[in-house]
Design a protein around this nucleic acid. Structure first.
Lengths: 344, 344
DNA sequence: TTGTAAGCGTTATCAC
DNA sequence: GTGATAACGCTTACAA
């Protein structure tokens, strides 16, 4: 794999420049010469060195993609969407899992810059990711925010309207008779969490239901977080009649805890969440959700990024708000009375 | 972002070499000089250029990772495992989704080589991926196969024993009374598919149950494939009493089709599969599966790869066989008679 | 302890 | 149409 342009050149009996011309297909090469060079390339298994190319052209043909976790059922499609779009544009993707850890995320960013990525797609860990991005952004480096926005940070982004989505979900619960509705939210330094909480408040307010701190549980947005929050919730008396969780994995964890206490969803308690749970939805279509087109976050994000890279994006930052659809299933059946103390 | 070593050098009033020494921390620099250089680095926001470094050192500090699809619930954790291990080793990962397409895969490989990755982790699309890898492997380029092995291709790999796993699954079905067992398999040019079919045959043979082509359905290993295969299966008379699918998504699709025909799992028909369905297992723990430690495929694979890259792996190729565990749940309740024609 | 010179594999520029 | 030369940003080898 150490074959260079020069090796090809000497085998073909031409200069390096001629080989370069053939490789880059610009034309201006005698057909006969071209053939000789192509033969040599094939014979030697020559593969151009992008490192060298990048060094001189300032184009690494790579972008960075930072997400909290590829395994997350929301981010996995985001990653695929971004990668597919990048491939079509001739770019490779350096994938990073920040684990929602600011320090790790910062290290990734620095290293990606060292690798001279031409742009960065990032679902920032928290609002404080801002400081890691500020210098980059000021220097005009192409950045696109995915899913989460950052306060006081003007930048291209692809998001959904979490306030509206959450409101739809909670309004639906209210419409079918729920009034004591709990919410599982995440630490308040993530925009989507804040917005979904805000949507929850708005829906309550519109229905003149008082907002109660007691019904809002702050937790990690994974299964274990949902599980624990539900355990705490189960100590309430009276129990809420429904729960709205900030995302799908939290809902799955909540469901698990409820089951263990003998509470059936939706018979004994309603459960709705942001984000669908793909396979689950097929097999047990009982959870009412707001579904986001996850893959589109990735593909549109990449598209915005490539426009920036090509300098075809203009001065102003663009913000794409994707539609999130309410999918009503069965997990929040209408209810009128106050639920029994099903478990203790 | 166009700050170079020289810029730092001139600002600090030293030579480029001195800056290089400071950056690489080799020592042998006067503390006072060191401080001046560090100040300059900070002041200028200098980030070393890995492209340039890689060009001279022949170390890009990147590896390639090719999987059919990151969204696949098996490969997503594989990717995370690999990326985490790579990060700890100071490497970045170029992620590629081959979409199980040989041509795409081949293009990826070539481009990754152009990017001078130091090694390749790959879950090959099919047996025919071999030709795309042969030249590389012969030249001693570090490659580790994940999940799938390739015939006549001697190479480090991390796999599970699919024959044994499948056999366990089918033996379990037989033990609880099933004798007419269908199998959904994939095209026979994927090692795991072949092996699982072989495990199915072995289990039947051990129980003196004749193997019947009629009960083996070849399909794509996604939800839609499972769905379609199940639809064909439902035309059989008598119906099989149980189905063993080659992976989890196929099982989910099958389940969907069965449901639509009014067949309940496991009441009316048994269903088992290779690979667990994470969230589903929590909420509807009815499917008996063979569970693979997916993330470990990635992390161990990366480990093998880095040993190769560091040339600490020796001549012979290593093959790690991970244990896949049978998890018995309820999806294959014991049965004795012949099932009714539940749907038509 | 620090600096100089050469070169990694390519491409831009300008001759021929 | 083709080739020499310099340069991209860094490190290795050697010199001071």
């Amino acid at each position: 794999m150490a074959v260079t342009l020069r090796d090809v050149a000497s085998r073909a009996g031409v200069s390096a420049m001629t080989v370069s011309r053939v490789v880059n297909g610009g034309g201006g090469v005698d057909p006969e010469t071209q053939r000789k060079v192509e033969d040599a390339i094939l014979a030697l298994d020559y593969v151009p060195n992008r490192l060298a190319r990048g060094l001189i052209s300032h184009k690494s043909k790579t972008i960075g993609l930072i997400v909290p976790d590829v395994v997350n059922p929301f981010f996995a499609p985001v990653v695929r969407g971004a990668e597919t779009t990048a491939r079509k544009a001739g770019y490779r993707v350096l994938l990073c899992n920040s684990e929602a850890d600011l320090r790790l995320e910062r290290e990734y960013i620095e290293d990606l810059i060292a690798h001279r990525i031409e742009g960065l797609l990032i679902a920032p860990a928290t609002d404080r990711s801002r400081v890691s991005l500020l210098a980059l952004q000021k220097s005009g480096f192409p950045i696109v925010l995915l899913d989460r926005s950052l306060p006081d940070f003007d930048c291209d982004s692809v998001v959904s309207d979490s306030v509206a989505g959450a409101r739809k979900l909670v309004e639906h619960l209210i419409k079918i008779g729920h009034r004591r509705i709990a919410h599982f939210t995440e630490s308040d330094d993530v925009s989507t969490g804040r917005d979904r909480l805000e949507g929850y408040r708005q829906a309550l307010e519109a229905a003149r239901i008082p907002y109660s701190e007691e019904l809002v549980f702050r937790t990690t947005v994974d299964r274990i977080g949902g599980y624990r929050a539900a355990q705490h919730l189960l100590a309430l008396d009276p129990l809420p009649t429904a729960i709205f969780t900030v995302n799908n994995m939290t809902a799955v964890g909540a469901m698990q805890a409820l089951r263990e206490r003998g509470l059936a969803v939706p018979k004994d308690i309603g459960l709705v969440c942001y984000d669908d749970v793909e396979h689950l939805a097929v097999l047990s279509p009982f959870m009412t959700v707001v579904d986001q087109p996850a893959e589109t976050f990735g593909s549109l994000g990449a598209q915005l990024l490539f426009e920036r890279i090509a300098d075809k994006a203009g001065e102003r930052s663009r913000r794409i708000v994707l539609q999130a659809d309410l999918i009503v299933r069965e997990s929040c059946c209408a209810r009128t009375g106050i639920p029994g103390r099903a478990a203790h």
